[in-house]
């Protein structure tokens, strides 16, 4: 069976685990352990390695979703995870502007690995403090051609929409395939 992968990245507590969990057909495999640093106050447990989900496309193909580690000290994993990915999603908690700078740093780091297609997901749009996707785009100083999409990571439909948008971007850059040889 052939496998392809997408990477879901973003700052700590931006919703990566929920995002993958919303569409994965297997329970998201994750490693979690008690955290002992300054992020302690944000949530009681956090992802220290990464999340991993799967969507079976057909009998010959599966899509794997890899969530990157939430905290800075695990950023050595990013390049490893980005190897061979189809594209990536940068998930941002739109209600926490204090994380926007970190999101931009993550985006720049991933773009430096390769020119793989990506989209930005402005998550937690159901929060009344959430910045609109268009404002987020300006705040992040992104080019006009970058797609910044509203997202609610706990909603399957919303996550589906983000992944489809990413796939459309990937499709735009995918190489043309040679036409099959004609039979005589």
């Amino acid at each position: 069976m052939q496998t392809v992968k997408m990477v879901i990245t973003g700052p700590f507590n931006s919703g990566k685990t929920s995002f993958i969990g919303s569409v994965s057909e297997i329970p998201v495999v994750r490693t979690e352990r008690k955290i002992t640093d300054e992020t302690r106050n944000v949530k009681n447990q956090t992802t220290v390695a990464m999340d991993f989900g799967r969507i079976t496309i057909d009998k010959d193909l599966a899509l794997y979703l890899f969530g990157t580690p939430g905290q800075k000290r695990f950023d050595f994993m990013w390049e490893i995870l980005s190897e061979g990915m189809l594209g990536f999603v940068v998930l941002i908690d739109s209600s926490r502007p204090e994380t926007f700078r970190e999101a931009r740093r993550i985006l720049d780091t991933f773009r430096s690995y390769s020119n793989t297609p990506f989209v930005i997901a402005a998550n937690k749009q159901d929060d009344e403090d959430a910045w609109p996707a268009d404002d987020l785009k300006i705040a992040l100083g992104l080019d006009s051609n970058v797609r910044v999409l509203p997202c609610v990571a706990t909603s399957k439909e919303s996550v589906k929409n983000i992944l489809l948008e990413l796939l459309y971007v990937i499709l735009e850059t995918a190489p043309e395939e040679p036409a099959p040889a004609r039979k005589r």
Binding site: I57, L61, L86, K160, L163, L167, I170, L171
Partner: peptide, 8 residues
């Protein structure tokens, strides 16, 4: 890619 899109 089209197969993945159709499935999603």
């Amino acid at each position: 890619i089209t197969r993945v899109i159709d499935r999603l």
